[in-house]
Write a protein that binds this DNA or RNA. Sequence first.
RNA 1: GCCAGGUUCGGAUAGCGGCAAUUCCAACAGACUGUAAAUCUGUCGCCCUAACGGGCUACGAAGGUUCGAGUCCUUCACCUGGCA
Length: 306
Amino acid sequence: MPKALKPKQVVILGPTSSGKTSLALKLCKKLGGEIVSVDSRQIYKYMDIGTGKLPVGEPFEVEKNDGLWVVNGVKVFGYNLISPDKSFSAFDFYNFISKLKFEKPYVFFTGGTGFYFDVILGNKKVANVSPDENLRKKLNKLTAEQLFLKLSVLNKEKAGLIDKNNKVRLIRAIEIETGSQNFVEKALPFIRPSVVIGLKIPRPEIYKRVDRWVETSFEALIEETKALIEMGFSETAPMKGLNYKTAVLFLSQKLNKQEALERMKYDNHKYIRRQETYFKKMPKVSFFDPLKAGFDSLMLSLVESG
RNA sequence: GCCAGGUUCGGAUAGCGGCAAUUCCAACAGACUGUAAAUCUGUCGCCCUAACGGGCUACGAAGGUUCGAGUCCUUCACCUGGCA
């Protein structure tokens, strides 16, 4: 067994279809490295196609284990952690990666979930109050207005800052206030990357790329969704998210193929925009366009010197 | 040829005398402190103003009625359905 190395940490973030995984795999091959997927959907088992666990168009040799895939000999942590009916939070993700052991000189944290990055980088504070499903269910019956009122009574200051229309936010805020007497909110910095690479492709180009992905993955996605429904996961949260929700509508014949493809493309465009908005304000990110000439060698030298 | 229905902001749709005009999609901008591929917000004819606001141009075309017209009337053009 090699000694526990302190690997060099590199963050690669970018919207869907920007080529994060391809880049990370290339760099791992060249430099010796492992990958941690920072992605709130790739954690689910049985959801490989729709969450884009592997870049399309290239053949891969893959060994799939829970929590660890080996892709062309490169370890990828963070895939297949749980089944789609289980809930998983940013905090759970933090716990998962804080237990990982690395054996290579480099580790690439690559993904598209900005919030997860913020938590593991320590950019965002988290409170030590666990989710309370019963409370959430109860609160969910109230209107946003009622929730806001409730929060105002509990913590006026927080109520002043919160988005009054966002029930999800309001419920969590109330949960924190009522959940525990002595909660603390603290940042949990886990990684200190030497470089933070942001992938950014001009809109028309990246839209074209996802569109192509949607077209080529559609049939496989439908098969995957069918299997998920057969396993009894149709009512789970990830099935109501990007791509899968549209696949479900197609399978129940609420949309025809043309409509489903269009819907899926638009949803992905929207998602890309939301990701870009998030990444834009994250500190210390250097953005690069992977479509520009010399990108691969630029990345190589950046990572080595960083 | 006759009868009926339609033509509205990139697409679809509401509107039945006070309208720069509804809603959805697209597009664009943004929020996010244990659901984050989720959830939520704003803008969306042109021009001026820091803002309240103001000006201009617009609902197939041309006329008309009216203080005032997507909205009513007339004619024309195009599309759709029924009868010939």
